[in-house]
Each structure stands twice: as structure tokens, then as C-alpha cells.
Nucleic acid binder design. Sequence first.
DNA 1: CTAGGGGTAAAT
DNA 2: ATTTACCCCTAG
Length: 297
Amino acid sequence: MGAPKQKWTPEEEAALKDGVIKHGAGKWRTILKDPEFSGVLYLRSNVDLKDKWRNMSVMANGWGSRDKARLAVKRTSRFPKQEESATELAAAPSDEEIVDVKLITAPNTTLQIPSTKRSIVRLDNLIMEAITSLKEPGGSNKTNIATYIEEQYWAPPDFKRLLSAKLKYLTACGRLIKVKRRYRIAPALSFSDRRRNHSMLFSEARQRVSPRFDRDDIKIVTKSQIDLELARMRNMTPQEAAAAAARAVAEAEAAIAEAEEAAREAEVAEADAEAAQAFAEAAMKTLKGRNNQKVMV
DNA sequence: CTAGGGGTAAAT
DNA sequence: ATTTACCCCTAG
């Protein structure tokens, strides 16, 4: 009856958040069409975005329009603490940046390149965007994807290695399909049936990020953990952030070394290394953005 | 198309 | 048993 449930991934939530920041809340269709987010949100409808945003907002400020009524009725005998004063501005800004939303609606000097404020550009998204934009029938090969991303964005030092690992990883996850050195975006998205079928197929793969029969070494680094760390880092002092970034870099190097060493069976280790480096990369970005508010592209 | 109401499977 | 969080429906 209802739907089998398809939980939102942290990536999707992040993309939605960035989309709202960029286009404003309510421009769901616009956000959906933006190539920067279509890669992540390609299996959501505009209505899905709207609903999810409602849920997230409710979580953030405590009172969305939704559960006012319910709470008022449910908690029948509330403490005589406060009456029905309408404005519940009081709510704490729970996290660091789900906050203002409503204020951002429009007028800013048109920011074109996502870099100033933040918005961590995910390699996932870039790859999806590249493939989507290139529109090569039969998929795009690694070189073309790399070229596209390098032209469009700032690329990290050993970007090629990162890209290779990521492509491999995305293929393993089932988000990309590799055919003769060319990559295409995975399932039957733009065609007839968007959900129902493929959600069952992929729900499992999408949930678990690192299936690792661990040897005694590297710790698992999932994407959500990265997000968490980054979020935490924005609240740090520069010193703390610097320390964290340094630690992240060290860990990334260790993970990469590990991956190279075990190159044969290193599919998963490589994913770990990639994740660690993605974190390090984002960490450095955040840190630099702090020290000098300069644009870096 | 978007906003809001409402239903319900899944989680706690 | 209650809450959460997706999904669907429909008016504007």
C-alpha cells in the first residue's frame, strides 16, 4: 500500500540542502533540473524534495506546520509554562547549518560557482554530472569524465587516482554500469518506471557502504561518517580544525599506502582510502576557507 | 507546479 | 503504543 520506504541517504540530504541554498526553498523543479544535483537526486521527484524538506525543517526548528496540531492535541495537559504565543522563534538552531533557509530565499549577488560559502562538491556528484552532461551514447570513458571535471572544477593533486577509485567504487555499488571501459549511470532512471522495481534492486546496495571483512588495520570510513566529521569541524576553532585536518591527511596517506600494498585484493581498501582522502580534501578546503576567506577554484 | 493535508509502513 | 518519515492526493 504505502511504499516500501526508500530512506534518504546523507548524500541526497546534502544535495537537497545545497539546492535550497542555491535556488531557494520551493524551487523544487529547478533544483531537480540543476545538473549539479541531478546526479544525486535523480530518483526523487519534485514532490519528494518538497516533502523531505518539510521533514528536515520540522526536525530543525521543532515546529513545522505539520505537527502543531498533533502536539497540541496529544500532549493534552501541557505544563502551564507557556501559552499559545504564536512565534516559536526560540527553538535552538540545532545543528550548524540547517538554519536560516527562509531568509535565503533570493537576493544575493548571483553566486555561480559553488565555493564561497561552502557546499562540498562531491566527487560522486561530479561524476554523475559529467556523464549526464557529456551525453555520450554508450557511456563515457574515464578520460572524458576526468577532462570534463577538470575543466569545470578545481581538481585535487592526484585526482586521477581518486577518480579511478571512485569509478570502481560506484560500479561496485551498482550506481554506475561499466561496459567496455565506458561508464553509464546505473538503473532505468529516465525511463518509464523510476521506482518500484529498481528500488528493490538497489536498496540493499545503497544502504551498506562498506562491507569489509576487516583485517586488523584500517577503520571503516563511511560517507555518513565523513559528513558528520565535517559538520563537526565547522564548529571547531581554527586550531582544532587544523589538527583535525592534519590527522585526516595522515590517515588518508596511511589508507592509500595500505591500499597500494594490498593492491590485488584491494577493492574495498581502495574505497576506504578514497573515502579518507575525500575527507582530507574537504577538510583542507574547509580549513583554507576559514583562514582566508578567499575563493579557490 | 507547489503547499499542505492525510495515510501508513517502519522504527523505537 | 507512539513517533517518524516516506508517499500520495488534491486544491490553489
